[in-house]
Computed example of a mutant assay.
Amino acid sequence: MFAATFLLSLGGGYLLFNRPAAASAQATAAPAQTTQETHPDTAHNEAPAEETGTTTTAAAPAASAEIFTKRGCVACHSVSALDVQGGVTGPDLSRAYLNVADKHGVPVEDFLKKPTSAVMSSVLGANPLTDEERAQVLSALQAASGK
């Protein structure tokens, strides 16, 4: 009974993981609009360096959090530190940048390349992250761990 339930939930998660194509199109459109609003053409002449750094830092976690929706991570995971609401099947990833090495025996970057857990091996094995996506995930996880 347990094995059947586990396999059914794993398959359902896999199906949910691979369906966010429409969400990624919306997520891709949103950052361009945010960037234009945050950084108008005249801002480089008027804003002091400290203020510009603050604006960029505040916008960076929101922009980097989109990767979790784009890749379907939110089907199973949340990242509460970045206000990313998602599933509860997997753990909240807010502290993953710091905790993966202890939990899985490899640094988080290596885990994203070749996961040591059976569930994540099946999810990322079928659809691995590109180098750019992995960099975005690492950046977002690092930002989340600092909050």
Rank of each mutant, 00 (worst) to 15 (best):
G87M: 01
T52P: 00
K113W: 05
A118K: 13
A62K: 09
P20F: 06
G146S: 12
T69I: 13
E133G: 08
P40I: 02
L8K: 06
V79H: 01
T130H: 10
M120K: 01
L93T: 00
P107E: 09
S145Y: 07
V100L: 13
F68C: 00
T42M: 12
L15H: 09
T116S: 06
L138D: 01
I67L: 02
V100M: 15
A135H: 12
V84G: 01
S64G: 09
E133V: 05
G86D: 07
A58V: 10
A29I: 00
N18S: 10
G105N: 02
A27E: 11
R19E: 04
K70M: 13
A118C: 04
V119N: 02
G72F: 01
L112Y: 01
L16V: 07
T5M: 14
T55I: 10
A59Y: 04
A58D: 06
E109R: 08
H39Y: 15
A3G: 10
E132N: 12
P61F: 00
L82M: 01
V79D: 05
E133A: 10
V100S: 03
E132V: 14
A126L: 14
Y97D: 07
F2A: 10
S122P: 04
E46G: 08
T89C: 05
V106T: 07
A32K: 15
L141Q: 14
A143G: 05
A96P: 04
Q142E: 15
D41T: 10
A60R: 13
L93A: 00
A60C: 06
A3E: 14
C73D: 04
E46L: 14
P48C: 07
L129E: 01
T54C: 08
P107C: 07
F2L: 13
G105I: 01
G125C: 01
D131V: 11
S122A: 10
Y97S: 10
Q26W: 13
G90Q: 03
S94I: 05
A63F: 05
L129C: 04
T28W: 11
C76H: 08
G87K: 06
A140I: 03
G86L: 03
S64L: 12
S9F: 12
K103S: 14
K147H: 12
L98I: 11
P40K: 01
P91A: 14
F68Q: 06
A25H: 14
A29D: 12
G87V: 01
T116I: 04
H77L: 08
E109W: 02
V106D: 04
E109Y: 00
G105R: 06
V79A: 08
A43V: 04
A43G: 05
V88A: 09
A23E: 12
Q33N: 11
A118Q: 12
P115T: 03
A143Q: 15
T52H: 01
A32I: 12
T116E: 07
A60H: 11
A118T: 12
R19Y: 06
P91G: 11
L124R: 05
V106R: 03
T28V: 14
L82F: 00
A30M: 11
V106E: 07
S9N: 13
V119H: 03
F111A: 11
D102G: 14
K103R: 15
K114C: 05
A101I: 00
G86I: 07
T52W: 02
R71K: 15
L8N: 05
H39R: 14
A23I: 14
P115L: 05
A135W: 09
A58Y: 08
A47T: 03
F111K: 02
R19F: 08
A65F: 02
H44S: 11
E133H: 04
N127M: 02
V79Q: 02
A59L: 05
L10Q: 06
